[in-house]
Design a protein around this nucleic acid. Sequence first.
RNA 1: GGCCCCAUCGUCUAACGGUUAGGACACCAGAUUUUCAAUCUGGUAAUCAGGGUUCGAUUCCCUGUGGGGUCACCA
Length: 457
Amino acid sequence: MIRTRFAPSPTGPLHIGTIRTALFPFLFSQKNKGDFILRIEDTDKERSKKEWEEELLKGLDWLGIKWNEGPFRQSERNELYKKQLEKLIEDGHAYYCFCSKEEVEAQKEHLMALGEAPVYRGKCRDLPKETVNKYLKEGKPSVIRFRTPVNQVVSFDDIIRSKIDNNTDTMGDFVIAKDFDNFLFNFTCAVDDMLMEISHVIRGEDHIPNTPKQILIINALGGKEPKYAHLPLILGTDKKKMSKRTGKTSLNEYIAEGYLPEAVLNFIAFLGWNPGTPKEIYTMEELINDFSLEKIQKSAAIFNIDKLDWINGLYIRKMPLMELTEKCLPYLPQKPIEELSKIVALYHERLKKLSEITELTDYFFKDKLEYDKELLRWKDMSDEELKSSLEKTYDAIDNNEDIMELANKEDNRGNILWPLRVALTGKKNSAGPLDIINVLGKEKTLKRIKEAIELIK
RNA sequence: GGCCCCAUCGUCUAACGGUUAGGACACCAGAUUUUCAAUCUGGUAAUCAGGGUUCGAUUCCCUGUGGGGUCACCA
């Protein structure tokens, strides 16, 4: 039975990279008709916030990533961890450490200076039982460390990267709990993966150094270790871990800008994975169908917003007009949807992100347009020619004549169409003037042409 | 610094050890347009370096270089 999990910690906005570490195990579990478990890793009481958890859940829902077990919260599982920790201490796999933070810190710096691995070299590792009990009775501050075996190689077969070896001497005796109410990541994660019988741990590459530690814990507890697959990282354009400096990092920002869930999903899936065929526009269903861990890339991928924009535009163009209009509602003034859909239709093919609709169509909702007179001029028209062009257009529209016919009489249709378009929109770029007139209505059209003529004088 | 991971066009990537190293985005040019998009056609552009192994390396091995990750009483 395939059982995967997504184990985020609710300590900040939902990161775009985090989404992929949710998506891949999800796809893998669905492909194999397995379970997908959501586990909230909120053992850090200081940093974990309910609001971040809510954002997380909302984000997954927006993307269509569904779990069938959970959400489990580690903060609600203390009893389970307590039991396992007691077992470790009893079996001698963990011990109390009474060293002060300063002491440990100083030792690490010293080792660093020597060019050695800066790890804890258990001073308290072999404290006699009586001493431990005495210190505990005195209430001397302590933490609980894992007794890492000395000079042993821990290896695991990463599904994406093949065999990875680690010497235990590079890990030292790491802390697994502050006390019996406060457990630390490597411990809770290992215990839960074991207890929840996770078959495949699929997570970011940044966890590779944690994996041997967690394997050690699972082994000490007598559990069966899962298979591991470490995903390549998503980098910013500066080839560093994505940060705010090089672009938007949180999903909410992308939602706000008007990216569609289908597009984000499609794009994220193809960062570090591909089906091995030229097809690259995929629905969730198709992704599930074609997904395989073997096709995952080893190297990190740079987040390329241009491609996202292209995919998003593609999905917008494929979308029925009414659906698109509804999605655009937050970016437009409150008007009847029938009216708005006519406006949106003009930009259906030009839109890359929903938020762009605001600026693109603002001239429909203004009483008076503000623009530079020079914008009206087509090529090297004189003021006279420009004025005459607009006046001819005005009369034609007033008499319900065909504008295209009028424009065709010119040696260059731009003589008529360009000034008209600018008069109606006040913009350098826009949809076609004839289409705009249809939506704008005769009265407003004439008013705007008149205003343009006055601008020339 | 120690340990670990990685390396094909600018970017995402394809290529049983044998291909004119393919595709997509971006970019450039042309067609179409009044403009901008959209669309269609074409183009520029890559195997990090040096050694091996081999009849033949993008592909396998080693070294170097470069990039990244990680070394918390965070996750």
